[in-house]
Amino acid sequence: MTKAELFFGFLLVGLFGFGGIAAAAHHVIVERRRWLTNEGYAQVLGLGQVLPGANLVNMTTIVGDKFHGFAGAVLALLGLTLMPILILVGLATIYDHFAQQPDVIAATKAAAAGAAGLIFGTGFKLGKTILDSRWAVLFALLSFTSIGILRLPLVQTLLCLAPFAVAVSFWRGSREK
């Protein structure tokens, strides 16, 4: 694979990404271009998920670096973000032209409400599999309360809660043995 192929491959991912860029990435990287096997892809995406930030951006960095080192990572990231950003700016410009129209106002409100629901649904889905103990529920409630209700800063919240979460994991792990 050349550097140009890497760039255009990720450009394609960005273009296909309407509503679900994860599916688009899998389609391009595994099925169309066959850069990685299913297992290889799952492994890289898994690593991207554990790290902070957008798992797809992380995955793109790792894949780019795997094939063409630092330059590959930069090219892959450029490819991934270029089209979405152009489309976004285009959408935003069109939106500004029609922002005062009643239909557009209603559509925007509905889209924002729906998108909030989308995040709720994702949280629920995730919670169903992750919250398997009282401790897990407690930590989820604590982070939710701190950020969602008390509106405390993210960094301080995590610096306070994460050590406890890790400590409890350790403690429960040693008790099970």
């Binding site: 919250l131 407690l138 950020i147």
Partner: peptide, 8 residues
Amino acid sequence: PLVVGLIC
């Protein structure tokens, strides 16, 4: 678990 709380 913290992540679930953050997303909610």
